[in-house]
Nucleic acid binder design. Sequence first.
DNA 1: AAAAGCACTTTGAATTACAAAGTAAATGAG
DNA 2: CTCATTTACTTTGTAATTCAAAGTGCTTTT
Lengths: 99, 99
Amino acid sequence: MKNPITGLNKVFDNRIRLGVMSILLVNEEVNFNDLKQMLEVTDGNLATHLVNLEENGYIKVHKGFIGKKTNTTYAVTKSGEKAFTDHITALENMIKGIK
Amino acid sequence: MKNPITGLNKVFDNRIRLGVMSILLVNEEVNFNDLKQMLEVTDGNLATHLVNLEENGYIKVHKGFIGKKTNTTYAVTKSGEKAFTDHITALENMIKGIK
DNA sequence: AAAAGCACTTTGAATTACAAAGTAAATGAG
DNA sequence: CTCATTTACTTTGTAATTCAAAGTGCTTTT
C-alpha cells in the first residue's frame, strides 16, 4: 500500500481554513462578517486563517467600499480551487483505501 | 447557510490520525511497523497519535507475540468506525455546500 | 461629541505536533 | 557467550499552531 496521506494538503488540516474554502467554492464572493457568522468563529481567529490562505495564494482579497464603509470580500483563486479539489481527491482516494 | 464545519471531528484534523484510520478501515489488523512504513512517519510521532486515537476510543490495541517477539496490532473500534464515517459524511456535505 | 460597531492586527497563552533521545526486550553476528 | 542492532515503544524538549482577548483606526449611531 502506498502512503495514503501524501497528497493531503497541510493548509487544509485546519477545520476553519477548510470551512472557508468550502464556502468560497460555492459562493463567488463572501465578506468578512458573513464568513465570521457562517463559521461561528471569533474575528481575530478568522482573520489569521484568512491571512494564511491568502499567503498561500488560495484566496484573493478585495478591499472595497459600500459608501464610506469598508467591505472586504474574499474569493478563491484558481490555484486555491485546484489545491482544494486536489486535497479532496486525495481524501477520497485515502478513504477508498488505495493499495 | 449553516455552519459547514460543525460535524467535523477534531481528532481527524490531523493527517496522521486520518491516515491511521483510513488504513485500519480497510485492513482488519495492522501492526506498528507496517503503519510506520505506510505512513512514513517517525516511530515517536506515530506512537503519540496512536495513543491519542486509543484514548479517544477509536482504535483498540492488541499486544501479542509472534514467538517471543512482541507484535502489537491496531484495529478500529465500532466507535472509531462511526466517528470516522461521520467525519467523512460531514466533509462530503461541506464540500457539496449544504446551504 | 461620545459611545458603539466593524474589520481587522497584535499579543500572549495554551495546546499540539514532532523529532530525537532513551529504554527494555529480542535477535543476529562474530 | 558477548556486543551490536532492531523493534516497539516512552519520555523529553522544542517548534509550530491555534485561538481568544485586547488594541487600533475608521465609521456610524445617538
